[in-house]
Each structure stands twice: as structure tokens, then as C-alpha cells.
Amino acid sequence: MSLLHVSGLTKEFGDLVAVDDVDFDVEDGEFVSILGPSGSGKSTVLRMVAGFEEPTAGTIALEGEEIVGKPPFERDVNMVFQDLALFPHLTVAENIGYGLKQQGVPKAERRERSERMLEMVRLEGYGDRTPAELSGGEQQRVALARALVNEPALVLFDEPLSSLDRKLRQHMQTELQRIQTETDTTFLYVTHDQEVALAVSDRLIVLNDGGTQQIGTVEDLYEDPASRFVADFIGDVNTVTGRVTDLDDDRALIDAGTGEIPVPRTAIAADVAAGDDVDVCVRPYQVSLRDAATTETDATDAFASTGTVLSRSYQGSDSLYDVDTDAWGTVSAEVREDAFRNGEDVTVTWAPEHVHVYRRDDEDRPDGGETEDRPDGGETEDE
């Protein structure tokens, strides 16, 4: 039995459907992130689990018990808010022990448990300080300690790292993982930041426009996105337009402006049919660059186009190139070789087995770009 079971969860605010029939489970000891753009419904889901919003429809069960209708203080959950909500007039130790005091836990036990939590978050000796004397990262740790001290079944996070700079945010990601592992507590974490979600999560729940787009491990969502939206939202992706000229159980023939390319059926979304206009998506790290003068490419075996290097960004172990291709407009390639310079002619290629192909549907695309009538080698939509 799952620790948290959410079924048919819906929330309406007048005519606005903020959350639309969402289902998911969280297992005991998991670190699960709900990821989506602003307005996707992710924070509303979290607030319904916490008890700060009542669902219009659906059920929420914690440890097998229905909790819809119960006030927040009767749910075995704690929440770490975006603004942390530390009491400025209380010491660090008093902030951590506040919930225990409300439960009637004796003072000596409160002090002992607060000190244990300070050790857990590596703030030993900070108990007598006030929140104003702490850095942003230290305040984050105090808020986490306060949420963990009464050993809840589930801890909820509403974008608590969004106010931190990138270096501190990366440090806190590591700390969250360490603390979650050491305490064996279940975390449900809401964020719009894909970098955070990819770094800390066992599984991801991707929402858009109130509905579930995909649920799975980080690897599943990155390597096998279920939709054009997920492919674009989880990591970087190149998208070129094409048309399916033939389709059977084993493969599809796709014309993306450079001739028909056979693509494995496993790379094609289930709703794609022969004759459909499609988006052909490929990750930058799957794109290869070669010197245009020396490259021998069989256009029937790979997606390929000549082009000119627009820019190069050194990434440490890799270099990220933007190439103005003759067939598709700008394509990004993340490669180990640092062999090309701006203005140089190159050939861009990628293998058919590395693509994901989705039926073109403007309503599902984050940029709302125009659908082209045919794959004539024109520009890709804006990224």
C-alpha cells in the first residue's frame, strides 16, 4: 500500500479548472517531485494534500486513511513553505520546537529533540541565535528541521529553494537528499525548476494546465518523454518539423525536409498516423558535428544537414554549438570535440533511433508556434 494515494483530484476556482483529475501514488521513503510551469496546478495539489485547500472532487489517502475534510493539524504531514515562515522573535531552537510545544511535549524533551535536529541539519550550536542572524541557506535548514522534528509521515515542500542563488541551491539539493536518506522520511517536493527536480528526485510527476503529462523516474522522463511538452520541459531538446509518409508495426518513414528517413516504431508516439505532420525531437547530446568537407553521410540512414556554426559555448567536458542548418534552422549540438569555430561549415547528423516523434498539436506546445503545412526544409519553430 502506498503511503500517499491521490485519485481523481480536481480543484475548480469558478470557471477555472486549476487541477484536473490528477492521480498519483507516493511510496514510503520516496523523494517525489511535482514539476511544471507556473499555473500548472502543482502548488494547488500540494495545498490540497496539506489541507489548506479542499478538493472539488477526488480522494487523498495517507497511510490508507482518507484525509479530505480533515484540518491541516490533524494530518500527519508538515510543510516547508517558499517564504520559510520562521518566527523572527523566537530563537532557532524555539522555532524548531514550536510544533512540539503545541503538542504539549515537555520542555526537556523539546530541547533534546531540537538539538538532535540541529545536528542532523549541521547547525550544532546555532540554537540560541535568531533567524535574522542566519544566512539564507541556514534558514532553509532550520525550516527543514522544524518540519522533521515531530517525525511526520510526509513532508511537503513548496519551492523552498527558489530564493537562493545557484551555488547555494545546488548545495541545498545535496543536503536535502542526505537528510531525506538519513531520516528515511517521505518527501513530496513542488518546483518549476527542472534542475532541482532532476537532481533530487526518485520520481517526477509532470503537470501542465492542471493535468498529468507523465509520471516516472528521472531517467524515464528524460530518455523517453511521453509528449512534446515533456520532451521540451525536461532538459534541452531540438525540434524539427516533418511528415510521416508511411507507418507500419516496425517503423515509420519521416520526411523532415532531407528525404525519407526510417525511424523505429518505438520512437513514434502512439497517436501518430501516416500522413500526420510531426515534431521530431532529439537531445543536443545525441547530435553529431563533422567537417562538411570530409563528412560522408548517407541521407537515407540518418537525419543530416549542412550548416554554419553560429556560436560555441564551452561547458567544461563538452562544448555546446548552435548551428544554422540549411534544412531546419538553428540546431544545438553538445559534443566532446572542441574542433569548430564560428562561421565554419559543418554537417549536422543524428541517428533515427535517438529521436522521439510526436504529432504536431499547437495546444500542447509551450510556445504556441504555428504549424507548418509541409516539411519543406524551412525554419523550426522558436525554441
Results as ranks from 00 to 15, higher is better:
residue 91 T to I: 09
residue 208 N to H: 05
residue 131 P to A: 00
residue 270 A to G: 13
residue 13 F to R: 05
residue 200 V to G: 00
residue 287 V to K: 08
residue 196 V to A: 14
residue 127 G to H: 00
residue 78 N to P: 07
residue 134 L to V: 10
residue 160 P to I: 02
residue 230 V to S: 02
residue 43 S to I: 04
residue 49 V to F: 01
residue 254 I to E: 10
residue 346 V to Q: 06
residue 36 G to A: 02
residue 302 A to S: 14
residue 31 F to G: 05
residue 292 A to F: 11
residue 377 G to S: 03
residue 202 D to G: 04
residue 87 F to Y: 15
residue 66 E to D: 15
residue 252 A to W: 02
residue 196 V to P: 06
residue 233 F to R: 05
residue 140 Q to L: 07
residue 356 H to R: 14
residue 16 L to Q: 14
residue 367 D to E: 14
residue 18 A to S: 14
residue 373 D to C: 07
residue 338 D to G: 11
residue 104 G to Y: 00
residue 179 I to G: 03
residue 104 G to K: 05
residue 358 Y to Q: 09
residue 130 T to L: 15
residue 130 T to Y: 15
residue 272 V to A: 07
residue 279 D to S: 06
residue 379 E to V: 08
residue 213 Q to S: 06
residue 378 G to N: 11
residue 285 Y to D: 15
residue 377 G to P: 06
residue 123 L to Q: 11
residue 61 A to D: 14
residue 208 N to D: 11
residue 32 V to K: 01
residue 248 D to R: 06
residue 235 G to I: 01
residue 302 A to C: 08
residue 169 R to S: 00
residue 39 G to E: 02
residue 155 V to I: 12
residue 202 D to Q: 03
residue 278 V to K: 05
residue 247 L to Q: 04
residue 80 V to Q: 05
residue 31 F to D: 03
residue 155 V to K: 03
residue 321 Y to F: 06
residue 193 D to P: 11
residue 76 D to F: 01
residue 216 G to S: 04
residue 228 R to P: 08
residue 12 E to L: 13
residue 94 E to H: 08
residue 221 L to C: 00
residue 132 A to D: 12
residue 49 V to E: 08
residue 258 T to E: 12
residue 287 V to I: 11
residue 292 A to C: 08
residue 47 R to Q: 04
residue 186 T to Y: 10
residue 194 Q to T: 00
residue 203 R to F: 03
residue 198 L to P: 10
residue 34 I to E: 00
residue 144 L to G: 05
residue 110 R to P: 07
residue 35 L to D: 02
residue 115 E to R: 15
residue 155 V to C: 09
residue 101 K to D: 09
residue 268 I to D: 02
residue 274 A to N: 09
residue 372 E to D: 13
residue 103 Q to P: 09
residue 83 D to E: 06
residue 248 D to S: 07
residue 234 I to P: 04
residue 104 G to Q: 12
residue 317 S to R: 14
residue 237 V to F: 08
residue 326 D to A: 08
residue 296 E to S: 15
